[in-house]
Amino acid sequence: MNWVSQNLGFIAGLLSDHIVFSLVPVVIGLVLAIPLGWLANRAGVGRTVVVNLAGLLYTIPSLALFVFLPVVLGTGILDPVNVIVALTVYSLALLVRTVADALEAVPPVLVDAATAMGYAPVRRFLAVELPVSVPVILAGVRVAAVSSISLVTVGSVIGFGGLGQMFTDGFQRDITAEVVAGIVLVVALALVVDGLLLLVGRLLTPWDRAARATRQGATA
């Protein structure tokens, strides 16, 4: 592990690149997935189209998508934007289904009650349906974030992979310590982000905690 202690600056730079490359797509994906998921949940045909299109996009291997996107986007083939857009596509494909499922699972009684209390559709969506969907949506965001963190590394084959460059560099210069350190860092980053998202979920759904406490109190 001498290699690691001698290259801390290099690793720190890759780590910050990695965080940006992997998490920006998840944020963009989520912001786009909420209105699209709402739309898919409202319209029956829209749902079929969205779910099938998302499934199709999700099927395309990452390296192929990284290389093919420039044809669609008109970007250079070695432009880091391709990696970010590709990961956004994957996050969106995953999250649009999650959002649609989450909204579908909101108990109709709740929606009716909100309507009866005078909530207009938009306010009802933002104040009732979306908050109630948080646990399911968050589960999807956790999957998207962890996948994205691991997928970024594939980008290093075409030059932009954050911590993945430790794999290509370690391969070319035959430094096993670098490769092992890279794997450990990617997995650790995924675990940390996953844990943080879990915490965010707890903070966003205080009623869930209250319900859990009551349940535990009842059984004790």
Partner: peptide, 17 residues
């Protein structure tokens, strides 16, 4: 679940080494 976090390129390089 762990597979999702594991970078495939890293695993490939490691096994080839």
């Amino acid at each position: 679940n762990g597979l999702r976090a594991l970078p495939t390129l890293g695993v490939l390089v490691l096994l080839v080494q």
